[in-house]
Design a protein around this nucleic acid. Sequence first.
DNA 1: TCAAGACTGACAACCATTGTCAAAACGTCT
DNA 2: AGACGTTTTGACAATGGTTGTCAGTCTTGA
Lengths: 136, 136
Amino acid sequence: MTVRQQPAKEHRRTRQRAAVDEVLDETEDFISAQELHSLLRARGAGVGLATVYRTLQTLADDGRVDVLRSDAGEAVYRRCVREEHHHHLVCRSCGATVEIAGPTVERWAKSVADQHGYADVSHTLEIFGTCPRCRA
Amino acid sequence: MTVRQQPAKEHRRTRQRAAVDEVLDETEDFISAQELHSLLRARGAGVGLATVYRTLQTLADDGRVDVLRSDAGEAVYRRCVREEHHHHLVCRSCGATVEIAGPTVERWAKSVADQHGYADVSHTLEIFGTCPRCRA
DNA sequence: TCAAGACTGACAACCATTGTCAAAACGTCT
DNA sequence: AGACGTTTTGACAATGGTTGTCAGTCTTGA
Ligand SMILES: [Zn+2]
Ligand SMILES: [Zn+2]
Ligand SMILES: [Zn+2]
Ligand SMILES: [Zn+2]
């Protein structure tokens, strides 16, 4: 049988999605749906809030953007350079993000889960700190 | 799990706090404030929802319970056996939790942060999967 | 061009969490 | 025990992020 990594669903190209895409491409830091919505409105290319949420949701599902939760529990999104699985080193005060790959950690997580009989394993790993620039 | 060390403040002993404490002691899995509230109500020892939230918040601040966010973004709490810093292997469907220590990961996180000049480092790391019992 | 159906957006609905504040409970001192 | 200053409680309102609704609009492939 043919195995396909991503069922690559067809999505229609619309002005709204292009607009969201553009903002994501220009934004280095993690951004919330609400912030993205405001940016779009300010920029003239208005897009409905629900649409922003749906678009980000879809992008996340397709693995085209990374999602994590801010301290406030709000979902924040970011278009990363790496396509493959990775993690982040995020500045607590300015949001500056460094993409991190940790093969060792990946193996460790998998092995720990296996040891306890847990299947369908996933994990979250983020590192927070204060970046050089934010330290005067 | 983010590490936190705060000077333990004095708190009055009340029936409500004792009830919450009791449930936490009897519960192995991560539990949400809402679930805890329902449990208390079902058990007869009713406690106001706001009080449950406040109590859990306080316990978390004092480092007496661990907090993390479920897939739905809901905060879930657990009284862990280990006092020291650790992580969790959590069942996505029933919440069954295994406490994990990963010295290697800790060092790795620190070194990665150092390499990029990030100071005051902390990290979050949780592993999710489906436990043996939930796979029938 | 045309129809099928995917997409959009204004708005309502949801729901976890927090704010409010008067009444009740605590701990302490007499 | 009784009084008293402080903390805690809880019913309810309010907040705020996120999702649901659904009629109208836009894409796409034929
Ligand atoms: Zn990323
Ligand atoms: Zn910074
Ligand atoms: Zn724990
Ligand atoms: Zn399970």
